[in-house]
């Protein structure tokens, strides 16, 4: 399976990523018995206080074609760098309310270190390199553009 040529996958999910999808994704790995460790990062929309009000949701947009090409490039680089068994990336598009999940990164390996380091690096690269934008919707009906730190 790891010898199979990998092709770009759609990473985008419309709206929030449900806890059920995450649970199902974990369950899907039970047959891969060479895995010894999973690492999961979940990004959650935070109710930040802004000058114009507090954040109630983030509306995500993306340059989808470019983002998918970039995600594929990152994916290949991480697979080449770490001995991973599996890697999954899901990012929301459209509106995600505070408290809901907007990013799900999931790596698996034989031993924990590779999964953990790869997951970390993936999250950093996704946030820095994917052409995705978050518009933070405020309770005042105004909005501000999210800035990644």
């Amino acid at each position: 399976m790891s010898e199979k040529k990998r092709t770009p996958k759609n990473i985008f999910v419309s709206g929030a990523i449900s806890p059920e999808k995450i649970a199902q994704s974990i369950a899907n790995h039970s047959s891969k018995t060479d895995i010894g460790g999973h690492s999961i990062f979940l990004g959650q929309v935070r109710a930040d206080q802004k000058e114009g009000g507090s954040v109630v949701a983030i509306d995500y947009t993306a340059y989808e074609e470019m983002a998918l090409e970039k995600a594929f490039e990152i994916r290949e680089a991480i697979f080449a760098k770490y001995p991973l068994t599996c890697m999954h990336i899901y990012h929301s598009l459209g509106e995600v309310k505070v408290g809901e999940i907007c990013l799900f990164v999931f790596t698996s390996s034989k031993h924990r270190r590779a999964a953990m380091d790869a997951c970390d690096e993936l999250v950093e690269r996704i946030k820095a390199e994917l052409p995705v934008w978050g518009k933070e919707i405020l309770d005042s009906d105004g909005h501000v553009w999210k800035v990644n730190t």
Binding site: P131, V132, W145, N148
Partner: peptide, 10 residues
């Protein structure tokens, strides 16, 4: 051609 403001995904 695309004009891209600073990325803020995640």
């Amino acid at each position: 051609v695309a004009l891209l403001p600073p990325f803020s995904g995640g």
